[in-house]
């Protein structure tokens, strides 16, 4: 279980997170929606220790992690994988080396054959074949995003964090990535937090949806609860949803 309690984060005089509190149960998929610049990515980066909060607590399986040192965080990060907004692949390494990179660090005892087997498994899970020897710039942006996902799941994290995983992708690839997130979370039984702008996708695969506005949590609930919400921003997000889809999700 992952809990965030009264989390506050400030950059200079600008308060980006204003006392956010959230709890995510094991195996749950939580979507975090909100306009750009409302602190969604900052929330994720605080959870994995890339940013330090000003105040508040982050409890991972009951352990307070927000005050840990960088070295202590390395242990926590073995449990948390994050897919960034950019694919963030290492340009000088091939696709194979990128996926194997974390494996070699997290499991130094693995033999080369075991590493190869795991890399192939992960690339299969994200539906990629025959790209192992290519460098990241030699494959499409959508493929790079999938390699990034494969690299993250290769180390078998119990918590998966996605920072706008479908930004900059065409609708077909967006759907494929969204399906992958759902499939992987169910197959690997991971707890997932997905930062997104895509309400349609959130209603499709999320267990619960949180909506942030100006650093505050303004709505939290299951897709069917969100569909009935009267919060103006939530209604704005729901404007693109057709009546047909709405009644399908409500039923």
């Amino acid at each position: 279980m992952l809990e965030v309690k009264n989390l506050t984060k400030r950059f200079g005089s600008q308060e980006v997170l204003k006392g956010i509190s959230l709890a995510i149960s094991e195996g749950e998929i939580l979507f975090v929606l909100g306009r750009s610049g409302t602190g969604k990515s900052v929330l994720l980066k605080n959870i994995v220790g890339l940013l330090k909060p000003e105040s508040g607590q982050i409890l991972l399986e009951g352990r307070e992690i927000s005050k840990l040192s960088e070295e202590e965080y390395f242990e926590v990060r073995k449990m948390c994988g994050m897919v960034f907004q950019h694919p963030a692949l290492f340009d000088s390494l091939t696709v194979y080396e990128n996926v194997a990179f974390g494996l070699r660090r997290h499991f130094p005892g693995m033999t080369p054959e075991e590493v190869k087997k795991r890399v192939t498994e992960c690339l299969d899970l994200v539906h990629l074949e025959g790209v192992e020897d290519k460098l990241p710039p030699q494959i499409s942006y959508g493929m790079q995003k999938r390699v990034s996902l494969a690299r993250t799941i290769a180390v078998e994290p119990r918590y998966l964090l996605f920072d706008e995983p479908t930004t900059g992708l065409d609708p077909v690839t967006t759907n494929a990535i969204n399906r992958l997130i759902s499939e992987l979370s169910r197959k690997l039984n991971t707890t997932s937090i997905v930062v997104s702008h895509d309400m349609h996708c959130a209603l499709e695969i999320a267990d619960r949806i949180a909506v942030l506005d100006q650093g505050q949590l303004i709505a939290l609930g299951t897709p069917s609860e969100l569909l009935k919400s009267q919060v103006p921003l939530v209604k704005d997000f729901l404007a693109e949803i057709t009546e047909e889809d709405r009644s399908r999700w409500l039923s």
Binding site: F84, A88, F90, R105
Partner: peptide, 12 residues
């Protein structure tokens, strides 16, 4: 975000 990705993979 490659530097962040390194940190996430427990590499200093």
């Amino acid at each position: 975000e490659q530097v962040d990705a390194l940190k996430l993979l427990s590499v200093d």
